[in-house]
């Protein structure tokens, strides 16, 4: 059952996981802004390296490297296409060598993908929906969000059972032409939909029996509160903004070619 291993709920706790999601989101936006502001290789490498301590503290290296692998294909593509056009067509900023501009492009892409993926890797769906709720998103949306995420492993198991049952009755999923294969999904799809609807009725009864929507104002058992670690991260983010504005305005960043020669 390795297929839905990734969806199973795990309670991971680390200093990064405990941070307020809103603060983490602010940090990611700052990284985004800084990465957009620079098109030189050096600051982008720096931005990439800044994120590694986060990954290590949160101990999500495995997932992080996996997402890095997924993104590197596109990054290489960006490099190759930009390099080819820059080299043969002459489309690149004159201050940079033809290989440095594409390198900066793909680095920027990696930095952006990684910062957003760290956010989602270190924020549990519960936290995320709590943050949404406290940002005044209607509660129905937050409820649907968390409950749907929690329902995924349950329904996955059910889907597996239905598939095994239909295979035992002689259904062959991997055979036939395209139309045949699509039609083969019907004996799986219909029981799945029916059982999902039955489950939703049970869910609705459970919700009603606990007086869903009876009170105007909801209260939460856990409330997101800013702690000292959150203020530290805000300080770091604001520091990064100030430093990058200063560097942008007053310092010319040496290009990699200049450093190497």
């Amino acid at each position: 059952m390795s297929v839905f291993e990734g969806f199973r709920f795990r309670h991971v706790s680390s200093p990064i996981h405990r941070l307020d999601p809103r603060v983490k989101f602010f940090y990611v936006l700052v990284i985004f802004g800084v990465a957009i502001a620079f098109l030189e290789v050096l600051p982008l490498i720096l931005l990439f390296l800044i994120q590694i301590p986060f990954v290590l503290v949160a101990s999500v290296q495995r997932e992080w490297i996996r997402s890095l692998k997924g993104a590197s294909f596109l990054a290489i593509l960006i490099f190759v296409v930009n390099f080819a056009f820059g080299y043969f067509g002459g489309f690149y900023p004159s201050s940079m060598s033809p290989w440095e501009y594409p390198l900066a492009m793909s680095l920027r892409f990696l930095v952006l993908v990684e910062s957003f993926s760290i956010f989602f890797l270190t924020t549990s769906p519960d936290h995320l929906s709590l943050a949404l709720e406290q940002s005044h998103v209607p509660y129905e949306f937050c409820f649907a969000f968390t409950t749907a995420v929690r329902f995924v492993p349950v329904l996955a198991e059910e889907a597996q059972t239905i598939m095994d049952a239909q295979k035992a009755r002689g259904l062959e999923l991997e055979k036939g032409n395209f139309i045949k294969r699509v039609r083969n999904y019907i004996p799986i799809l219909i029981p799945l939909i029916v059982s999902a609807i039955r489950r939703s009725l049970e869910l609705a009864e459970a919700m009603e029996s606990r007086a869903w929507g009876a009170t105007e104002k909801r209260t939460n058992l856990y409330v997101l509160k800013m702690r000292s670690a959150d203020y530290t991260l805000i300080a770091i983010s604001i520091g990064m903004v100030i430093i990058s504005i200063y560097v942008r305005l007053f310092i010319t960043i040496p290009s990699l070619t200049m450093l190497l020669t």
Binding site: F143, A148, V152, I197, S200
Partner: peptide, 15 residues
């Protein structure tokens, strides 16, 4: 409530 529960389960089913 029914509609909300249904939507929730349908979202999980899509995943």
């Amino acid at each position: 409530t029914k509609m909300l529960a249904e939507g929730t389960v349908i979202i999980a089913l899509t995943v």
